[in-house]
Amino acid sequence: MAQPLEVVTESKSISSGVRDASAVAEGLGQVLADTYRLTFKTHAFHWNVEGPLFFSIHNLTEGQYEDMFAAADELAERMRALGQKAPMSMADIVSNSVIEDSDTAPSAGEMCDLLAEDHQRIAHRLHALIKIAGEQNDPVTEDLATARSAFHEKAAWMLRALTTG
């Protein structure tokens, strides 16, 4: 009678030299939560914008929410690459985000101002993440956060440019 084979399972963890992956993932989770909430807010403003700036804001916000939706996936996948879990509930997203919903229907100009402020908030959070990632020897997250910060800073500028006169 043949002896059963012993199954040896190897660790599937990847050691890339990141010192404290959980600290980096926490920062990524906050930025992911902000990105997800701002994606929805931008999409809602896209649907509801009215007035002479309709076409400009409608088109600009479409490009922005599409970019942020893709970025949310990239941020979550980076968390997973670090061996951490991505958020599993909207409650996690809401509790980890500094982005707030609008209780009223703002004017087109107010929409631009609100979104610009939110993009700026996320850029600040990304600057903090860049610092954390650097301290934890994680150049991949540093690069990701730098690129995302550049997007949010440009988005804030473009939104403000629409209403500055």
Results as ranks from 00 to 15, higher is better:
40 F>S: 03
88 M>R: 13
39 T>Q: 13
74 E>K: 09
41 K>C: 00
37 R>P: 00
21 A>P: 06
32 L>V: 03
80 R>S: 07
131 K>P: 00
110 E>Q: 15
39 T>V: 00
86 A>R: 09
47 W>L: 02
143 D>G: 04
65 Y>C: 00
83 G>F: 04
61 T>S: 07
134 G>K: 15
151 F>C: 10
83 G>K: 05
35 T>H: 12
32 L>Y: 14
43 H>L: 02
76 A>L: 04
63 G>E: 08
131 K>H: 14
122 I>H: 07
129 L>Y: 14
97 S>F: 09
44 A>L: 02
150 A>R: 15
133 A>C: 09
28 L>V: 01
142 E>F: 12
13 S>K: 15
106 P>L: 07
78 R>V: 01
137 N>T: 11
91 A>N: 10
104 T>V: 00
12 K>S: 09
112 C>A: 14
38 L>S: 05
14 I>R: 13
102 S>A: 11
80 R>Y: 06
142 E>N: 11
82 L>I: 08
140 V>L: 09
95 S>G: 01
66 E>S: 09
122 I>Q: 07
21 A>H: 10
74 E>S: 03
64 Q>K: 10
69 F>D: 10
71 A>W: 03
97 S>Y: 09
53 L>P: 04
57 I>F: 05
45 F>W: 01
56 S>G: 02
149 S>F: 12
26 E>M: 11
127 H>N: 15
85 K>V: 03
140 V>P: 01
112 C>W: 04
36 Y>A: 05
58 H>T: 04
153 E>I: 12
61 T>I: 02
72 A>M: 12
139 P>E: 08
97 S>Q: 02
12 K>E: 10
105 A>I: 08
142 E>K: 15
45 F>I: 00
83 G>S: 06
37 R>Y: 06
126 L>C: 07
14 I>Q: 14
121 R>L: 15
38 L>V: 03
